[in-house]
Design a protein around this nucleic acid. Sequence first.
DNA 1: TTACATTTGTGATATATATCACATTAAAAA
DNA 2: TTTTTAATGTGATATATATCACAAATGTAA
Lengths: 225, 225
Amino acid sequence: MEHSCVACIYKSKAAKSLNDEDQDLLSCNHLLVNFKKGDPVIRQGHYSSNIMYLRKGLAKIHIQGPYREQIIKIVKAPRYLGLPTTFGDKINQYSVTVIEDSEVCFIDMGIFQKLLASNKEFSNEIILNLCWYELDSFRKCALRTQKQTRGNIADVLLDFAEYFYQSDTFRIPISRDEFGTLIDTSRESVSRVLTEFVNDKIIRMNGKEIEILNKKSLKQISEKG
Amino acid sequence: MEHSCVACIYKSKAAKSLNDEDQDLLSCNHLLVNFKKGDPVIRQGHYSSNIMYLRKGLAKIHIQGPYREQIIKIVKAPRYLGLPTTFGDKINQYSVTVIEDSEVCFIDMGIFQKLLASNKEFSNEIILNLCWYELDSFRKCALRTQKQTRGNIADVLLDFAEYFYQSDTFRIPISRDEFGTLIDTSRESVSRVLTEFVNDKIIRMNGKEIEILNKKSLKQISEKG
DNA sequence: TTACATTTGTGATATATATCACATTAAAAA
DNA sequence: TTTTTAATGTGATATATATCACAAATGTAA
């Protein structure tokens, strides 16, 4: 399914910096694909020669650890996927799986590099993105390991409410088990803390449906523990 | 102290891709500074308008967490420092401190961006570096949290021996306390595990001096725990 | 050298949370 | 629908490791 980049409403900031001619080049060399919740976009260990652009939806970045699969982070559109992998090594070093119905553009790697080489603003924007990603990794790494489970769970809930869904009512797009691997804890502990939050009237919960009732408390828990 | 980049033996792969003219431009716009062990190169919260290039030595990247200062990782020359910070935000988002006498080139940010804009190979090399850094973060994040203390300590020792010093005899450049913040454990636990390794004849130890006696065991511990 | 501060080692104890076990519920398949 | 499979909740127990306390050693300044 070919698609005009010039007219795309989900265009990345990097793509906006391209002139119409280069955007047409991009249009002719990319493929827009619809993914259903649970579909893998990038598979660790597989070969890849594309840059992916998550233009709509939500995805998890996960990696095979020594014992279990671990979710590194959850990311939302708009965002490029697979930059580290495709540049450094054609073999994917991690997996990306969509956790909500999503739309992904597959961009030919050769074209992408051509655009990088011929367009300062584009390449500058991509570098900027990579820098943000690394900073984000640093912070996540430091925060997660210093907080205990309650604090980390509060963090994730706040992330969903304020960043991913921008609403105090939302449906958690991952299972308790995945929730656990995201914050390095067991699914049982996630359950226990969530019911604890319900008892403390901090959230209302019905399965995966969450409503945040007391954001102030949640923020306190996020900061203090 | 100005310095010729053309003749520099510590030149980065990115800098090597520049023609002599651009390398001279770099020569005229950078400052080579000697740092003593313990000296800060980048300070979290401070303003910065330079890209740093660690051309010789060893440094720790650390960040202020909610409770304590945490070492994200230890890096060795040759390596650029401060890319994420200086591009994304002029305020440093993390600290870098030299843990051995080191040499650092301070490169003017404007010049650096000019080189990025005018030189495909240079910018490609920098992008490649950023990609590696992020992959490294992903892996560290997954490995550290899934292993327990013995495994993480084995990992760090192996890192020193095989990557940083390339010798089975070396002097740990950080205190037990720092060692703890690097692998998210307490200084006491580091002490305990290290003496355990001595008792098991896996290492010989005299204060910060380490000799690895049984690398095979160490690798087993690294993998299994 | 002595005096003082910092780092390190090690035992005892407390505690957060992993793990196990099983019941319950929800989702998917037949 | 019924049957099967997967996800979730919750109590009991085990355990790795944090924390506390203090001694010993090492480094640093006077």
